[in-house]
């Protein structure tokens, strides 16, 4: 649906201190202020967050799904890149 007065925004929520903002969804809003308020009303109703980012969807450059073979398959055969051979100390916390 074309909505020139209310473009699309992507919403990112940080649920706790120390964690990264995570993409939770999108919404329509007229500008940054209203997008932030709508994000609060739509995505933090159940205490999900301590911080919100809203980003114009048009600002996001996405990879092309038709190129996923070239983009992502070469990594699949390289299991030695996974750091599975040592243990993460508990003190490190979130990684």
């Amino acid at each position: 649906m074309a909505t020139p007065n209310t473009p699309l925004w992507e919403v990112f929520i940080r649920s706790r201190n120390g964690l990264a903002h995570k993409h939770v969804g999108s919404l329509h809003a007229s500008d940054t202020t209203m997008a932030l308020q709508a994000a609060r009303d739509l995505y933090t109703r159940r205490g999900e967050g301590l911080s919100i980012w809203v980003v114009p969807s048009s600002a996001i450059t996405a990879s092309d799904p038709s190129e996923k073979g070239m983009m992502f398959e070469p990594a699949e055969s390289k299991i030695y890149r996974h750091p599975t051979f040592y243990e993460v100390p508990d003190e490190v916390g979130h990684m």
């Binding site: 209310t6 919404l27 329509h28 809003a29 308020q37 709508a38 009303d41 739509l42 109703r45």
Partner: peptide, 11 residues
Amino acid sequence: PMLEEDMALAN
């Protein structure tokens, strides 16, 4: 008028 505002009013 829009879904976002529907939620805002209900909130």
